[in-house]
């Protein structure tokens, strides 16, 4: 009875949509009569390709043109050719390990910060994700609930994540209250350089770890149970079963997950930007924020320089993505 009612309501609601589709069919048949099946193929493809071309391919081309032209104008015809000047400006350094000796010191600060962030965040997060996935794959009750606990921050927006943690890490926040309970000194989590970097890493792990837990858990569950049963029958200790069965079979998944995490970490921006605004000072300035600020926010707006920087970042990402595609193919073959 209930399901019957549902279908009636559904039918009433979907009726206008169906009529619309039937009405569209009349011009469609006419068009098919003129253009034939190839015409229909292009009809199906064109909307997507049009948007795709306009907002992905054209910008890509413009990006390259921007990076070799100068000035603050946005129209290509108003810009003059400067060759590799932007790249030279970005890459010119006395000592590449010391950003202060570079012409574009902010770019190098952002680049080194990003490298530091990527390695810290990815390594801690992956270890955390592997342990969690292993535990969730064990014999526990309410697995779906626990998986949800670790996963739900993934869906929160960066602004929400940033604000939740800003609230908890502020001077009068709950973290300092916990320290206070233990008679410890209050910490300026977001205004001291080292702590602010640690906070950025921690918050970004909190926000993303669930995604990797989910993928690793799926990988673990795909390992056939009888392998473990056979190992148990042979009297293999669990630790050995982990090193000899779990790890080798999870390894392809793990590699793909690591590269995926690297790709995401290189682009770090929004939640950290909301959390600390990139500060204190430049301690949380990362590449995306550098591009954003040079391209849009600063008074000395320089689209060419921002484009050159984003091409450098894109080349890092392309290498990582190619690695990921290769690894996925290798994993599927295995």
């Amino acid at each position: 009875m209930i399901s019957n009612e549902k279908t009636t309501i559904g039918a009433v609601l979907s009726a206008p949509v169906r009529w619309l589709a039937e009405a569209i069919d009349i011009p469609m048949r006419w068009w098919q009569g003129i253009a034939g099946r190839p015409g229909m193929i292009s009809f199906f493809l064109i909307p997507n390709l049009l948007i795709f071309g306009m907002f992905v391919l054209v910008p890509l081309f413009i990006n390259i043109v921007y990076s070799v032209t100068g000035g603050t104008e946005l129209f290509l015809s108003d810009r003059s050719y400067v060759g590799g000047a932007h790249f030279n400006r970005l890459l010119e350094c006395e000592n590449h390990f010391n950003p202060n000796s570079c012409r574009e010191d902010l770019f190098w600060i952002a680049l080194w910060n990003t490298i530091k962030f990527v390695f810290t965040q990815v390594s801690v997060m992956i270890v955390f994700a592997v342990i969690t996935a292993l535990i969730l794959n064990g014999k526990i009750r309410a697995r779906a609930f626990w998986r949800a606990v670790f996963f739900f921050p993934v869906l929160l927006s960066p602004v929400v994540v940033g604000l939740i943690w800003q609230w908890m890490l502020q001077r009068q926040g709950v973290f300092n209250f916990i320290l206070f309970q233990f008679d410890a000194q209050a910490i300026n989590w977001l205004t001291e350089r080292t702590w602010a970097f640690g906070a950025a890493v921690g918050v970004s792990i909190w926000a993303h770890v669930g995604f990797y837990v989910l993928i690793l858990l799926a990988g673990l569950q795909a390992i056939p149970r009888d392998l473990y049963e056979a190992a148990e029958m042979d009297g293999t200790p669990p630790a050995r079963a982990f090193w000899r069965i779990t790890l080798p079979l999870l390894w392809p998944n793990l590699l793909v997950v690591i590269v995926l995490a690297l790709i995401r970490a290189v682009q770090v921006f929004d939640e950290v930007y909301v959390l600390t605004g990139g500060g204190p000072g430049t301690s949380n300035l990362y590449l995306t924020q550098y591009i954003y600020e040079v391209g849009f926010a600063s008074i000395l707006r320089n689209p060419g320089l921002a484009s050159a920087a984003s091409l450098i970042m894109a080349s890092i990402l392309v290498v990582l993505t190619l690695a990921q595609l290769g690894l996925t193919r290798w994993k599927d073959k295995k």
Binding site: L49, F52, L60, Y292, L322
Partner: peptide
């Protein structure tokens, strides 16, 4: 060719393209 094009652009996140995308959106 179309498929390849789409795969290729999987690699380009919006954060890399923001500056030129802004000029496209602005000229539209």
């Amino acid at each position: 060719a179309v498929l390849l094009l789409i795969v290729a652009t999987l690699m380009i996140p919006i954060s890399v393209n923001i500056v030129p995308l802004y000029s496209v959106v602005s000229s539209l």
